[in-house]
Amino acid sequence: MPRLDVREITPVNRHDTIHEEFDRMGPGETLTIVNDHEPTPLYYEMAAEVPAFDEGAYEVRQTASDEFVAEFPKTEQ
Results as ranks from 00 to 15, higher is better:
residue 56 G to R: 13
residue 19 H to T: 04
residue 5 D to E: 05
residue 23 D to H: 12
residue 69 V to A: 02
residue 71 E to P: 04
residue 36 D to H: 01
residue 34 V to I: 15
residue 5 D to S: 11
residue 57 A to M: 09
residue 13 N to W: 08
residue 69 V to G: 02
residue 19 H to Y: 14
residue 74 K to R: 15
residue 30 T to Q: 05
residue 23 D to Y: 08
residue 76 E to W: 06
residue 36 D to P: 00
residue 75 T to D: 11
residue 51 P to Y: 03
residue 44 Y to R: 09
residue 49 E to F: 15
residue 62 Q to G: 00
residue 30 T to W: 05
residue 14 R to C: 13
residue 54 D to F: 11
residue 43 Y to G: 02
residue 23 D to M: 10
residue 4 L to A: 06
residue 77 Q to N: 12
residue 60 V to T: 02
residue 54 D to A: 14
residue 61 R to Q: 13
residue 40 T to A: 12
residue 16 D to R: 15
residue 24 R to G: 02
residue 73 P to K: 06
residue 65 S to T: 05
residue 41 P to S: 06
residue 72 F to N: 06
residue 70 A to M: 10
residue 43 Y to D: 13
residue 66 D to N: 01
residue 39 P to Y: 04
residue 11 P to W: 02
residue 17 T to H: 07
residue 50 V to F: 05
residue 49 E to L: 13
residue 38 E to N: 13
residue 76 E to K: 10
residue 13 N to D: 15
residue 40 T to D: 06
residue 33 I to Q: 03
residue 75 T to A: 12
residue 75 T to E: 14
residue 14 R to N: 11
residue 13 N to F: 14
residue 59 E to N: 03
residue 9 I to N: 05
residue 48 A to C: 01
residue 12 V to H: 12
residue 7 R to H: 03
residue 40 T to G: 02
residue 8 E to V: 09
residue 55 E to P: 03
residue 32 T to V: 12
residue 5 D to W: 04
residue 35 N to Q: 08
residue 47 A to V: 09
residue 6 V to T: 07
residue 41 P to K: 09
residue 1 M to R: 07
residue 71 E to H: 12
residue 7 R to V: 00
residue 66 D to F: 00
residue 20 E to G: 11
residue 37 H to Y: 14
residue 49 E to M: 12
residue 43 Y to M: 03
residue 63 T to P: 00
residue 72 F to K: 06
residue 37 H to L: 01
residue 70 A to K: 10
residue 38 E to H: 12
residue 42 L to Y: 08
residue 29 E to K: 02
residue 59 E to F: 03
residue 40 T to V: 12
residue 26 G to R: 07
residue 39 P to V: 10
